[in-house]
């Protein structure tokens, strides 16, 4: 959680990463159960907030954890981004579910994952290794002030309207907009600095 001290953040992240690794390497059921207990109820909340019914949200949360089990070997423990990795699984399932509502039942809905695989093109100066990007991202995020991170989180990931954010944080609307702009610019410059 963002409100926790950095130490807790790091140790939590390291713990989730270890659990996923245990699932990948040893097919460790206890590690999986720990992941399930923590993440499934939160993914369920995420799905409900996106408009899923109680039952659908429950199913999607289960699907997400099943994907954690099946794909654990694809997780890079060095990235320490366990929550980020599980978030991407939940995000893709949410997109799939929204598409199923729009499409005919026979159409293929398993494309989302491919759409988010970032292809690294054969361009001369694009040869930055994924692990290098991870390290850069980690450093940048730890240098980004909490209040800036919070406003990015609220605006894009909770899809909270700016006026609503202003009320929640008890700051003027103009400050929300400027803080958001500042946060994004700061993040990009931090990422640039580490390159």
């Amino acid at each position: 959680m963002l409100s926790e001290t950095p130490d807790n953040e790091t140790s939590d992240a390291a713990r989730w990463a270890r659990l996923i690794e245990a699932v990948a390497v040893r097919r460790d059921r206890e590690a999986f159960a720990a992941l399930f207990r923590h993440f499934a109820p939160r993914i369920k909340t995420f799905m409900k907030r996106s408009g899923a019914s109680e039952q659908l949200a429950d199913e999607l949360a289960q699907e997400a954890l099943f994907a954690v089990w099946s794909k654990a070997s694809l997780f890079d423990p060095g990235s320490a981004g366990a929550a980020a990795w599980i978030f991407t699984i939940a995000r893709n399932l949410r997109i799939d579910a929204l598409r199923r509502q729009k499409r005919t039942p026979t159409s293929d809905t398993s494309e989302t994952e491919l759409e988010f695989q970032r292809d690294e093109g054969p361009l001369p100066d694009a040869g930055v290794a994924a692990s290098e990007i991870e390290a850069r991202v980690r450093d940048a995020l730890s240098a980004l002030p909490d209040e800036q991170m919070r406003v990015i989180e609220l605006s894009f990931f909770h899809e909270t309207a700016h006026a609503e954010i202003a009320k929640m944080l008890d700051i003027p609307l103009g400050t929300v907009k400027s803080r958001l702009r500042l946060a994004m610019a700061r993040l990009r410059s931090l990422l640039d600095d580490f390159s």
Binding site: A83, R118, A126
Partner: peptide, 29 residues
């Protein structure tokens, strides 16, 4: 495809998504 810098920004944003997820109140399964 051709921009590692923006790939890093997206990756950073996914970490923010992870923080969001971890910070959500749980709903009983």
């Amino acid at each position: 495809v051709g921009c590692p810098k923006c790939r890093a920004v997206v990756r950073a944003m996914e970490h923010v998504g992870g923080a969001m997820l971890t910070g959500l109140p749980p709903t009983a399964m």
